[in-house]
Design a protein around this nucleic acid. Sequence first.
RNA 1: UGGGAGGUCGUUCAAUGGUAGGACACGCGGCUCUGGACCGUGUAAUCGGGGUUCGAAUCCCUGCCUCCCAGCCA
Length: 577
Amino acid sequence: MSNDKTSETEGAEAPSTSGLDFIRQIVAEDQQRGKHDGRVHTRFPPEPNGYLHIGHAKSICLNFGLATEHGGRCNLRMDDTNPTTESEEYARAIEEDVKWLGFDWGEGFYYASDYFEQLHEYALQLIRDGRAYVCDLRGKEVSEYRGLWNEPGRDSPYRTRSIEENLDLFARMRAGEFEDGSRTLRAKIDMASPNMNLRDPAIYRIRRVPHYRSGSDWCIYPMYDFTHPLSDALEDITHSLCTLEFEDHRPLYDWFLEHVDVPSRPRQIEFARLNLSYTVLSKRKLLELVEEGHVSGWDDPRMPTLVGFRRRGYTPEAIRDFCDRIGIAKANSIVSIAQLQDSVRQDLNQSAPRVMGVLRPLKVVIDNYPEEQVEEVEAVNNPEDESAGTRPLPFSRELYVERTDFREDPPKKYFRLAPGREVRLRYAYFITCQEVIKDPETGEVVELRCTYDPETRGGYAPDGRKVRGTIHWVSASHAVEAEVRLYDHLFTKINPEDVDEGGSYNDALNPESLETLTGCRVEPSLAGAPPGHRVQFERQGYFCVDVDSRDDRLVVNRTVTLRDTWAKIEKAQGQSK
RNA sequence: UGGGAGGUCGUUCAAUGGUAGGACACGCGGCUCUGGACCGUGUAAUCGGGGUUCGAAUCCCUGCCUCCCAGCCA
């Protein structure tokens, strides 16, 4: 958040807005012109009917970022006007997620439901001014009267009711005299408008159910289109940022501000919502994934939710960096998941301590190493951060190395272990593979017999000879056993929502999105690591201790792999054959 | 079909009448006790057609394509 070195533009009256995204340009211009007294006040208005996902993060970073960049404020507001889908649990989770992402709303925490009384007053004003009426049409009838895109709607037969009758009926709606769905309060705008939103939209509906906050104080609830502009105005919001699908709601947004006596005049600006390759980002679909059991919950590490990413091991810094990098525009687009992965790698590379972890252990016995001997070699904790220091690693005659670091028949450019080959065990010794032991039944390689060169302690050969390969390892008797969960995309298609007729987005569910490895071996320093602890398993990737972890059962999630140049080479070799 | 909004390297975002640039991805090279990181380098784009202009991604006209809207959801 400190990417501003633009204050060097002294002489210029109006600093250039070049390079800024279109919203920041508008805000900068507004501020230069002294609009809203030069104030910038934004808000992030989630509905507490689900968990926040990475798409929300884009909006959060925009709204909070904009405010801090201009010395303004950003409110967190629960947009909770629909009691049937919302809950306290979601509201609390949202609050926590925004905090986790690293943003602070100060005193600015609000609930639209706290405005119910004021909103009701505003509705009365509209009625008194002849701008709203109680309509007795049922849902189906309303939509019949609404007309089609290319055909104007018809006025409701109740449109011409007297103000007194409207006032009376609305009071009785509030008093609970009418059943759900039997009546609505509608804005009297224009049934012939080419914009459907202006064909007398409902502003209050009857829902005789308790609200998670207002309890049973109300049985009528205001609609989004009515609530939102007025809530913004009540909070003195200057710039009300929302996504593209609300673009043609803007005339309605402005209509309410125009016809209700509000304290301020916010402006709605729309931007494109985030789409991520190989994932879905809609609360409805994410809810389905949870309810249908395709994932273990909202915080399943494969979920694009903030709780999911958190459990997976993503850092708030990485997510913020990602949001900075993808920019803000009006063109709808699908951002590559590789972009996000780059952001985490970038962050974790700096901060994650290195550790030895063997995912698929292959036993190695060093024949010329003394039977009972154990020594300690010194390992660097983080080559990117000298202050992280070093740690001792136990070394002994029996080790585990990565199964994929041995090939009986090595392909070209394979620098790892193979019969007769010498490699370096990171921070320890050079070893040479002398013998391959196989299971007589299956032919599977079960053990490698190797010899080590005692002169190469620490990983250097005094005679100056080089080895091409350095591999990771753990001492068999000292290693801690762990369960490692590897994740892949939840979906196999770049855009799972792009489905053929009759298809469903979950046809593209990836059956291999979770791979659980048991019997993995990690270095002893990881014993007892708490959930949330992030490390790099050298040469493998970044990992994070899962909440399922117990003292006697280490469970770690793979956040993201390291870049794997060898995998690319091998893939290219495979293709050229 | 009516209304609204979009279309720039493979992807994403810039360039606001004056050399089309960054990031990711990809390729090549260097360095390396992580085939990581890092360093260097390269490939690669203005939806089509007209016009205005010394000069157009940008302004005008026209065509094409994509997205959103017919909840008493947000």
